[in-house]
């Protein structure tokens, strides 16, 4: 009897041990290189930090830096934050809708589909890199590089000026949307393939048109992936290295930088919370998620 009991406990502890072993390598790295440094930077945001040859000297300053950033000096935070937030509010839904539609199109059977899938996934390798940053640096959120191209000339020649200007700015941002939706397209494509073909067949037999098939089957089926993409896009946009606020986080005045980073983090968190709330609202009113 004792033996049986021992075996049961050892089985459960074994399971627990196994689970911990699975998580351990990542968790240790996480604690040492992410969690601890973050906590440390929070601590530093209440300190004046001076880096000297012998080490790091700190003097507590309380909430001074937070007050400075939030209330005194608009130049550090608000001047860049407000236009950036406005852009993000526009960009996120466009990226999501564009990548959703592209993924659905890429799922349709047509010649060279595989090649197009590869091409649309391609931005993953340069989106985070220097190339895009260089492009963006040349124009504010738009692509100056298009000005020299043939397309620009066609636009200015054949389209009236009052229409050409907005068209051009949309085009410039549109290319940015294209380039930042590689992973999202992939996620939607993978998600689309989790919906079995038999469901579509059943809908067709029941006489459903493509329009209602999209709303009643495809969209609800993709809703977990929609959520995933929403979070991914927000994070991707807000932690982009060329982001105006992140570029102000330097190692020079570390106390102020830490405070700025934490304030920014709170704003991002708030933004994500709002986005999730909106998503939940919208999905409930449309009945998404009813299937799962």
């Amino acid at each position: 009897m004792n033996l049986a009991k021992l075996r049961i406990t050892s089985a459960t502890t074994r399971r627990k041990l196994e689970g911990s072993l699975f998580i351990a390598p990542w968790a240790i790295g996480f604690l040492v290189f992410v969690a601890f440094p973050l906590a440390y930077s929070l601590y530093m945001s209440f300190q004046q930090v001076r880096i000297t040859a012998t080490g790091i000297n700190t003097t507590p300053v309380g909430l001074l830096y937070y007050r400075e950033i939030l209330f005194a000096d608009g130049g550090l935070l608000y001047d860049d934050l407000v236009p950036f937030l406005r852009e993000a509010v526009l960009m996120i839904p466009i990226i999501l809708i564009f990548s959703l539609l592209t993924a659905i199109l890429l799922n349709v059977r047509f010649g060279g589909r595989m090649i197009f899938r590869v091409i649309f996934f391609l931005p993953v390798i340069f989106a985070s890199g220097q190339i895009i940053q260089e492009f963006i640096a040349q124009g504010e959120g738009q692509l100056i590089i298009l000005q020299g191209s043939q397309l620009e000339r066609i636009l200015s020649d054949y389209v009236p000026r009052s229409w050409g200007e907005p068209l051009r700015s949309i085009l410039g941002s549109f290319v940015l949307v294209l380039w930042s939706s590689g992973v999202q397209i992939l996620i939607f494509l993978a998600g689309r393939q989790t919906i079995p073909a038999s469901v579509y067949e059943a809908a067709r037999i029941d006489g459903a048109d493509p329009w209602s098939t999209f709303w009643k089957i495809t969209l609800p089926g993709l809703s977990p992936f929609l959520l995933l993409n929403l979070i991914y896009t927000v994070v991707d946009l807000f932690t982009f290295p060329s982001n105006p606020i992140i570029s102000k986080v330097t190692t020079e005045n570390y106390g102020v930088s830490s405070a700025l980073a934490w304030i920014y983090f709170m704003i991002v968190l708030l933004f994500l919370g709002l986005a999730l709330l909106l998503y939940r609202r919208a999905s409930r009113s449309m009945g998404i998620g009813a299937i799962r």
Binding site: F33, L38, S41, M44, T239, L269
Partner: peptide, 12 residues
């Protein structure tokens, strides 16, 4: 932690 830029944690 997804939301933190890596620049923040350089010194720690």
């Amino acid at each position: 932690t997804l939301m933190f830029a890596p620049e923040v944690v350089q010194i720690p």
